[in-house]
Simulated assay, not measured.
Amino acid sequence: MALAKHFVVVFALLFVFNSCSGQRLKLRYYRKTCPKVEAIVKRETTRIITRAPTLAAPLLRMHFHDCFVRGCDGSVLLNSTRRAQAEKDAIPNQSLRGFGAVDRVKSAVERKCPGVVSCADILALVTRDAVSVLNGPFWKVPLGRKDGKVSIAAEALTNLPPPFFNVTQLKASFASKGLNSKDLVVLSGGHTIGTSHCSSFSSRLYNFTGRGDSDPALDSNYAARLRRKCSPTDVTTLVEMDPGSFKTFDEDYFALVAKRRGLFTSDSALLADAKIRAYINRQVATKGSTFFKDFAKSMVKMGKIGVLTGNNGEIRKRCAFVN
């Protein structure tokens, strides 16, 4: 009982700390020190995504993975050292792409404003602009994050929700970061862009319960189609998460989930919660009437998780290395 009370107190303090840190972020934070930073980031990101639209989803995922481990401090960008393995080399992050794109944008900003803009802020801006290029929503990004100096692979394993989580586990994972059920379903809508390796969902296709069957929560026709693409041991083939429009940010994800065609267990799991299911059905019925607005709001909220501001952290010269 005492341990439970202690956990509640610690959780509450962490949430308050995260919220207060997020409140220290502000719009136009660099208006005096680097007034053209957003224009530079937008220009470079637009060039990158126009040439390689499939990078938008990995960048969105990278921002999510960064914020869920130690907060939005750019720790996912750090390289491993001889002494310690960094987050980017943890199993959930080994499929991340786009580090070179972030470095390219950082270099462009450094040329104009050396030592001023953090990698954590650049990642937040790049993510916003990458989504926008694919016809997604645009949101104002509060800035002022500092870069962390610590990156631990094991923390990625314990903080990132895996694709096989059920809805109770997903809600608990998001709640631990100050995000609610609506944030969960809205941010899951980011699966409207991008691809996934077969290995991330093949357990749903083969021998799901030990009887050589597929996951009953997955539409049988869709499961059959996926089996034609993915063998049980396939670790290289990529499958579109939103077939037919995986390079366009839209509301189609919710229609797929409603039809039991969400690619991951965590997608299908959303239907198990009545309020989340109601949100999904509402987006389907109204063709995503509020999705873009909701997504923008949840992204701003997520971008404030556990940020370092003021005298905490640093402004890295290169995103993969501490100064």
Results as ranks from 00 to 15, higher is better:
residue 182 K to I: 13
residue 76 V to Q: 04
residue 179 L to W: 05
residue 245 S to T: 13
residue 229 K to S: 13
residue 293 K to S: 15
residue 89 D to Y: 02
residue 164 F to Y: 10
residue 166 N to T: 12
residue 157 L to E: 14
residue 262 G to L: 00
residue 6 H to S: 14
residue 187 L to Y: 04
residue 29 Y to P: 01
residue 225 R to A: 15
residue 298 S to T: 14
residue 108 A to S: 13
residue 144 G to T: 01
residue 184 L to K: 01
residue 292 F to K: 08
residue 9 V to S: 13
residue 177 K to R: 06
residue 20 C to P: 07
residue 186 V to Q: 05
residue 317 K to A: 15
residue 156 A to I: 10
residue 67 C to T: 04
residue 67 C to V: 05
residue 135 N to K: 15
residue 64 F to V: 08
residue 236 T to D: 08
residue 309 T to R: 00
residue 300 V to T: 13
residue 116 V to Q: 11
residue 284 V to E: 06
residue 234 D to H: 06
residue 290 T to K: 11
residue 85 Q to S: 15
residue 70 R to G: 02
residue 155 E to V: 09
residue 163 P to W: 14
residue 35 P to H: 00
residue 59 L to H: 06
residue 27 L to N: 03
residue 39 A to V: 09
residue 118 S to F: 04
residue 38 E to N: 04
residue 7 F to T: 11
residue 22 G to R: 02
residue 278 A to L: 13
residue 319 C to G: 03
residue 247 K to H: 12
residue 31 R to E: 00
residue 212 G to M: 12
residue 22 G to M: 02
residue 224 A to V: 05
residue 189 G to W: 03
residue 213 D to K: 07
residue 229 K to Y: 11
residue 198 C to T: 04
residue 14 L to Y: 09
residue 112 K to W: 00
residue 118 S to T: 06
residue 265 T to A: 07
residue 204 R to C: 08
residue 272 A to C: 04
residue 233 T to I: 03
residue 306 G to R: 01
residue 147 D to N: 07
residue 316 R to T: 00
residue 166 N to C: 12
residue 206 Y to K: 07
residue 14 L to N: 09
residue 252 D to R: 11
residue 150 V to E: 06
residue 297 K to S: 10
residue 10 V to H: 12
residue 150 V to F: 10
residue 233 T to A: 06
residue 158 T to D: 08
